[in-house]
Amino acid sequence: MADPFTGDRIILKDLGFYGYHGVFAEEAKLGQRFFIDLELGADLSAAAESDRLSSGISYADIYDVVKQSFEDRRMKLLEAVANNIIEALFQSFLGINWVILRIRKPEAPIAMVRGEVAIELHRVRK
Protein backbone atom coordinates (compact mmCIF):
# COMPACT_ATOMS: atom_id res chain seq x y z
CA MET A 1 0.00 0.00 0.00
CA ALA A 2 1.40 3.41 -0.98
CA ASP A 3 2.11 6.04 1.63
CA PRO A 4 -0.64 8.68 1.30
CA PHE A 5 1.55 11.37 2.90
CA THR A 6 3.65 12.05 -0.19
CA GLY A 7 3.84 14.72 -2.86
CA ASP A 8 3.49 18.48 -2.65
CA ARG A 9 2.90 20.02 0.75
CA ILE A 10 2.40 23.32 2.52
CA ILE A 11 4.31 23.56 5.81
CA LEU A 12 3.59 25.92 8.69
CA LYS A 13 5.84 25.51 11.72
CA ASP A 14 5.98 26.86 15.25
CA LEU A 15 2.60 28.59 15.16
CA GLY A 16 2.29 29.89 18.71
CA PHE A 17 -0.98 30.24 20.59
CA TYR A 18 -2.04 30.88 24.15
CA GLY A 19 -4.82 28.60 25.28
CA TYR A 20 -6.69 27.01 28.16
CA HIS A 21 -6.78 23.39 27.01
CA GLY A 22 -5.98 20.67 29.52
CA VAL A 23 -7.35 18.30 32.11
CA PHE A 24 -6.47 20.27 35.25
CA ALA A 25 -8.35 23.25 36.71
CA GLU A 26 -5.14 25.32 36.78
CA GLU A 27 -4.81 24.93 33.01
CA ALA A 28 -8.35 26.21 32.50
CA LYS A 29 -7.71 29.17 34.80
CA LEU A 30 -4.13 30.20 33.96
CA GLY A 31 -3.68 28.92 30.41
CA GLN A 32 -0.34 28.27 28.74
CA ARG A 33 1.56 28.36 25.45
CA PHE A 34 1.01 25.83 22.69
CA PHE A 35 2.89 25.39 19.41
CA ILE A 36 1.49 23.82 16.26
CA ASP A 37 3.35 22.35 13.28
CA LEU A 38 1.42 21.51 10.13
CA GLU A 39 2.06 19.70 6.89
CA LEU A 40 -0.80 19.89 4.39
CA GLY A 41 -0.83 17.73 1.27
CA ALA A 42 -2.13 19.56 -1.79
CA ASP A 43 -1.34 19.71 -5.49
CA LEU A 44 0.70 22.91 -5.78
CA SER A 45 1.44 22.66 -9.51
CA ALA A 46 -1.14 25.28 -10.63
CA ALA A 47 0.28 27.88 -8.21
CA ALA A 48 3.84 26.95 -9.18
CA GLU A 49 3.13 27.39 -12.89
CA SER A 50 0.93 30.51 -12.71
CA ASP A 51 2.66 32.43 -9.88
CA ARG A 52 -0.81 33.62 -8.83
CA LEU A 53 -2.13 33.37 -5.27
CA SER A 54 -5.58 32.66 -6.66
CA SER A 55 -4.22 29.35 -8.03
CA GLY A 56 -3.11 28.13 -4.62
CA ILE A 57 -4.03 28.09 -0.95
CA SER A 58 -3.27 31.19 1.11
CA TYR A 59 -0.99 30.54 4.10
CA ALA A 60 -2.71 33.43 5.90
CA ASP A 61 -6.09 31.77 5.39
CA ILE A 62 -4.72 28.48 6.73
CA TYR A 63 -3.41 30.29 9.82
CA ASP A 64 -6.79 31.96 10.36
CA VAL A 65 -8.60 28.60 10.27
CA VAL A 66 -6.08 27.06 12.69
CA LYS A 67 -6.35 30.01 15.10
CA GLN A 68 -10.15 30.02 15.03
CA SER A 69 -10.32 26.25 15.56
CA PHE A 70 -7.73 26.34 18.37
CA GLU A 71 -9.59 29.12 20.21
CA ASP A 72 -13.11 27.90 19.38
CA ARG A 73 -13.68 25.94 22.59
CA ARG A 74 -11.69 24.62 25.52
CA MET A 75 -10.84 20.95 25.34
CA LYS A 76 -9.21 18.59 27.80
CA LEU A 77 -7.07 16.59 25.38
CA LEU A 78 -4.58 17.74 22.78
CA GLU A 79 -5.87 14.96 20.53
CA ALA A 80 -9.32 16.59 20.50
CA VAL A 81 -7.86 20.04 19.81
CA ALA A 82 -5.86 18.64 16.89
CA ASN A 83 -8.84 16.75 15.49
CA ASN A 84 -10.98 19.90 15.63
CA ILE A 85 -8.33 21.82 13.67
CA ILE A 86 -7.94 19.07 11.06
CA GLU A 87 -11.69 18.86 10.48
CA ALA A 88 -11.85 22.64 10.00
CA LEU A 89 -8.94 22.54 7.52
CA PHE A 90 -10.58 19.80 5.43
CA GLN A 91 -13.87 21.70 5.49
CA SER A 92 -12.30 25.05 4.56
CA PHE A 93 -9.85 23.93 1.85
CA LEU A 94 -11.07 21.34 -0.64
CA GLY A 95 -7.58 21.14 -2.16
CA ILE A 96 -6.06 19.66 1.00
CA ASN A 97 -5.78 15.87 0.66
CA TRP A 98 -4.02 15.03 3.91
CA VAL A 99 -2.82 16.69 7.11
CA ILE A 100 -0.06 15.97 9.61
CA LEU A 101 -0.58 18.13 12.69
CA ARG A 102 1.62 18.24 15.80
CA ILE A 103 0.66 20.18 18.93
CA ARG A 104 3.42 20.82 21.44
CA LYS A 105 2.79 21.81 25.04
CA PRO A 106 6.05 23.02 26.62
CA GLU A 107 4.60 23.78 30.04
CA ALA A 108 2.61 20.59 30.58
CA PRO A 109 1.89 20.10 34.29
CA ILE A 110 4.30 17.23 34.78
CA ALA A 111 7.60 17.19 36.66
CA MET A 112 10.09 17.63 33.85
CA VAL A 113 13.12 19.87 34.01
CA ARG A 114 13.32 20.34 30.28
CA GLY A 115 11.36 19.34 27.21
CA GLU A 116 7.75 19.31 26.15
CA VAL A 117 4.92 16.94 25.49
CA ALA A 118 3.33 16.65 22.08
CA ILE A 119 0.87 14.67 20.02
CA GLU A 120 0.79 14.20 16.27
CA LEU A 121 -2.19 13.18 14.14
CA HIS A 122 -1.98 11.96 10.54
CA ARG A 123 -5.28 12.23 8.64
CA VAL A 124 -6.31 11.68 5.03
CA ARG A 125 -9.43 13.28 3.56
CA LYS A 126 -12.29 10.75 3.58
Rank of each mutant, 00 (worst) to 15 (best):
M1L: 11
M1Y: 08
D3N: 15
P4L: 06
P4E: 05
P4Q: 10
T6W: 03
D8L: 02
R9I: 00
K13E: 14
K13P: 01
K13N: 14
D14L: 05
G16A: 13
Y18K: 13
G19S: 09
G19V: 09
H21G: 08
G22V: 10
A25W: 13
E26P: 05
E27I: 00
Q32W: 04
R33Y: 11
D37K: 03
D37E: 02
L40F: 09
D43H: 05
D43P: 01
L44I: 01
S45K: 14
S45M: 09
S45W: 07
A47S: 14
A47Q: 07
A48E: 03
A48M: 00
E49A: 11
S50A: 09
S50I: 00
S50W: 11
S54R: 10
G56R: 02
I57T: 07
Y59D: 04
A60H: 02
A60D: 06
D61R: 06
D61V: 04
Y63M: 00
Y63V: 01
V65E: 00
V65S: 07
K67H: 04
E71F: 03
E71L: 08
D72R: 05
R74C: 00
M75Y: 04
L77D: 04
L77G: 07
L78H: 02
A80D: 05
V81D: 12
I86S: 10
A88D: 09
S92D: 13
S92M: 10
S92W: 14
L94V: 09
L94E: 14
G95N: 12
W98E: 03
V99T: 03
L101M: 06
A108Q: 13
R114Q: 11
G115H: 15
V117Y: 15
V117P: 12
I119R: 14
I119L: 15
I119P: 12
I119F: 11
R123C: 07
R125C: 00
R125P: 07
R125H: 13
